[in-house]
Design a protein around this nucleic acid. Structure first.
Ligand code: ZN
Length: 426
DNA sequence: CGCTTTTGACCCGCGC
DNA sequence: GCGCGGGTCAAAAGCG
């Protein structure tokens, strides 16, 4: 009976969930409850951003103060103190300067978070639009979408506030989407242990089965980090650990505990050759709002997947073209290498942050390969591999640059140093 | 106290 | 049918 109840629960979860897909990523959600730039108006170009209540703004990215301060050299006074007064004054001056810098830093941080949130919302929206487009009439021009997105940006921010209420994109292939079937009999449905066959017989419609085969996209993140696990804004409970066969490093299994029935699972494993590389595999769909920090990655990856999936309809060309707005949209936030492949039963998005170079992300490249899981017109061949050197960030230099900088800096230092906090590891 | 981690047992799909 | 290997469970141990 236990197992039965469990099964029921899992079912309930997937069913209750709006059925969305996504995954989270790092960024520890540290509540910087600090007072935001109070009266001071963000002297930054507002990209149609709306700043909501400061308290809500908390982002994971932490740009280090050092950087900023370096930029903004504080008052240096080499001359030895002739008098105590002088010295004091100097100190005071420095303190003041410091305070100011801090303040500015904070402001920037907040702004960044705002931008991120907004961006995420927009991002998601864009993706959704894309999918709809692709759905309605297969391959359309992306231009329209682009313009729409732009408009959206100017006005859009309803969701841009704090903890983005809006869920994630469901990147299920069109075939599944159009049929908005609700309860997803997840593969997790299969439960074992003991036997209480008294339960209802598994009556699966063929469609459901089909969907099951489609499964959800999986996301794997490769990042350099010596920490046991990268914090991604969610709480995870470890439920297992196994030794990989040809690999001395064990693999750990986690489950999301942020919400009662979050079916999201993830497995963390260390790369065999390069111990400094941590491979995190996400799978499943959160049924609760994610912290903004997590959202960034989530939307990015799912966006990538969506692009692949939907783009496949109109042949890979659409995806290949660097001018593809979607491609551009995806790149900015992930200054790494995104690899999407749908060869497996389920599409897989791979975010590679291994070679995250410090400076600006002009070097991001997207690699897409794979085919739609089920596409009658196309052969299931291994898939063509397309490489796109994305001339990313064309849109908003300011915004994008800031975001990129924040991310790269975060990863550069923290990741390498092996300090990727484990917000949840406790 | 409520939570997470630990850890051996167990389930299950798959190839032989 | 059997063995294997990946994945999961759950009881007990830890921890703040
Ligand atoms: Zn979750």
């Amino acid at each position: 009976m236990e197992e039965d109840s469990r099964r029921g629960r899992s079912l309930e979860l997937s069913g209750s969930a709006g059925v969305v897909d996504e995954m989270d990523f790092f960024a520890k959600a540290e509540k910087e409850r600090a007072r935001p730039a109070s009266a001071t108006d963000h002297g930054v170009p507002h990209l149609g951003l709306k700043k909501e209540d400061p308290a809500a703004v908390n982002i994971g990215f932490q740009l280090f103060p050092e950087t900023l301060e370096r930029d903004h050299p504080t008052v240096q006074q080499q001359s030895p103190p002739d008098e105590d007064n002088d010295a004091k004054r100097v100190v005071e001056a420095m303190q003041a300067e410091l305070a100011r810098t801090n303040e500015e830093n904070r402001r920037l941080k907040n702004m960044l978070s705002d931008a991120t949130n907004n961006y995420n919302a927009l991002h998601v929206h864009l993706i959704r639009l894309m999918q709809q487009r692709n759905l309605s009439d297969g391959n359309t021009q992306f231009h329209e979408v682009t313009s729409e997105a732009d408009e959206r940006r100017e006005e859009g921010d309803e969701e841009g506030g704090a903890v983005v209420p809006l869920q994630f994109i469901d990147l299920r292939p069109a075939s599944v989407v159009d049929e908005e079937s609700h309860s997803i009999t997840d593969e997790g449905t299969r439960r074992r242990r003991s036997s209480s066959p008294a339960d209802q017989p598994p009556s699966k419609s063929s469609e459901q089965e089909h969907e099951a085969s489609t499964r959800k996209a999986r996301v794997s993140v490769r990042a350099r980090s010596s920490a046991p696990m990268i914090g991604d804004g969610c709480h995870w409970r470890k439920y297992g650990q196994k030794m990989a066969k040809g690999n001395p490093c064990p693999r750990a299994y986690y489950r999301c505990t942020m919400a009662a029935g979050c079916p999201v699972r993830k497995q963390v494993q260390r790369c065999a050759e390069d111990r400094s590389v941590l491979i995190t595999n996400y799978e499943g769909t959160h049924n609760h709002p994610l912290p903004p920090a997590a959202m960034a990655m989530a939307s990015t990856t799912s966006a990538a997947a969506a692009m692949l999936l939907s783009g496949s309809t109109s042949s890979s060309e659409g995806v290949t073209n660097p001018s593809n707005p979607l491609a551009r949209a995806i790149m900015p936030s992930s200054s790494g290498v995104v690899t999407v492949s749908a060869s497996a039963p389920f599409p897989t998005v791979t975010l590679d942050l291994t070679r995250t170079s410090g400076p600006l992300p002009a070097s991001s490249s997207t690699r897409v390969f794979g085919q739609p899981p089920h596409n009658q017109s196309k052969p299931q061949s291994v898939a063509d591999t397309v490489s796109v050197a994305t001339a990313a960030m064309v849109a908003d230099p300011n915004f994008t640059a800031a975001l990129a900088a924040a991310i790269s800096s975060m990863m550069g230092r923290k990741g390498d140093g092996g300090t990727h906090q484990t917000s949840d590891s406790k």
